[in-house]
C-alpha cells in the first residue's frame, strides 16, 4: 500500500509539471503540450513506465479492497451508539471512499483524454502532433466538468493528507523527529498538489 501510494504520488508530481504547460500563452502552450504528449506516448522507456504505473494503480486498488475486507471481518457487530470517530480525522477513516472517488475520476479521465488520444481520431496540430491541447481546452469550457474535476481533486487532496505520512509510517519510519518533518511535508504536499491541479481547469474555464 505504502510503496504503491508513494510511487503514485511521484507520478502526480510529474503529471502536474507536464500539465503546467497548459498555463503558457495559447500558441506556445498548444505547440509545446502536444509535442510533449507525443513524446510521452512514443518513447519506449516512458511506455514501460506507463505500464508500471497502470499496474501500480491496480495493485494499490486491490490492496485497498483487501484491507477493507479484512477490517470488515475483524469488526464485530456494529455499535448502537458509535462515537469512535472522535479520536481520528474523518479523512483518515475514509481512505477507501476517497480512493473510490479518485478511482472513479481516473476512469472518466482516461475515457476523456487518454482513450481518444491513444485510440481515437484526433485532429493534428501544425507540427503534425495529435492536438490534445484543444481537446483539453474544450473539455474545461463546461462548468459541470470543472466542478467534477474539482471534487475529484479535493478527494485526492484529502487522500494524500492522510496517505503521505501514513505511507512512511507503514514503511517503518518511527523516529519522532522525522515523523514531525514527514507530517509537515505531507500536509504541504497534499495542499500543493490540490492547488496545482485545481488551478488548471479554473484557469482554462475563466480565460477561454
Amino acid at each position: 500500500m505504502a510503496l504503491t501510494g508513494l510511487f503514485l504520488s511521484l507520478f502526480l508530481v510529474i503529471h502536474l509539471l507536464g500539465n503546467f504547460q497548459l498555463l503558457l500563452p495559447e500558441e506556445q502552450a498548444k505547440e509545446q503540450y502536444n509535442l510533449y504528449s507525443n513524446l510521452l506516448s512514443n518513447n519506449p522507456i516512458i511506455k514501460l513506465i506507463a505500464y508500471v504505473l497502470y499496474a501500480t494503480i491496480l495493485l494499490h486498488t486491490i490492496d485497498a479492497i483487501n484491507l477493507t475486507i479484512k477490517a470488515k471481518k475483524a469488526n464485530g457487530l456494529s455499535y448502537v451508539k458509535d462515537n469512535r470517530n472522535r479520536a481520528s480525522k474523518w479523512y483518515a477513516r475514509q481512505m477507501m471512499l476517497l480512493g473510490t472517488v479518485v478511482f472513479a475520476f481516473l476512469v472518466i479521465h482516461f475515457k476523456d483524454f487518454w482513450y481518444p488520444y491513444k485510440f481515437g481520431e484526433l485532429p493534428m496540430d501544425d507540427n503534425g502532433n495529435k492536438d490534445l491541447y484543444t481537446l483539453v481546452m474544450i473539455s474545461f469550457q463546461e462548468l459541470w466538468y470543472v466542478i467534477l474535476y474539482a471534487v475529484a481533486i479535493l478527494g485526492l487532496g484529502f487522500h494524500l493528507l492522510h496517505g503521505f505520512f501514513s505511507a512512511f509510517r507503514s514503511l517503518g519510519v518511527y523516529h519522532p523527529k522525522y515523523n514531525r518533518i514527514i507530517k509537515s511535508v505531507g500536509v504541504a504536499f497534499a495542499v500543493s498538489m490540490s492547488i496545482g491541479y485545481l488551478i488548471i481547469p479554473f484557469y482554462i474555464y475563466f480565460n477561454f
Binding site: L67, K70, A71, K73, A74, N75, R84, N85, R86, A87, S88, K89, A92, R93, M95, H162, F165, S166, R169, S170
Partner: peptide
C-alpha cells in the same frame, strides 16, 4: 488471530 490491519488513523493512542 484475525485482528485487522493498521491504517494509521491514530485513534488508538487517543483512547
Amino acid at each position: 488471530l484475525s485482528f485487522g490491519h493498521c491504517t494509521n488513523t491514530e485513534a488508538c493512542q487517543v483512547e
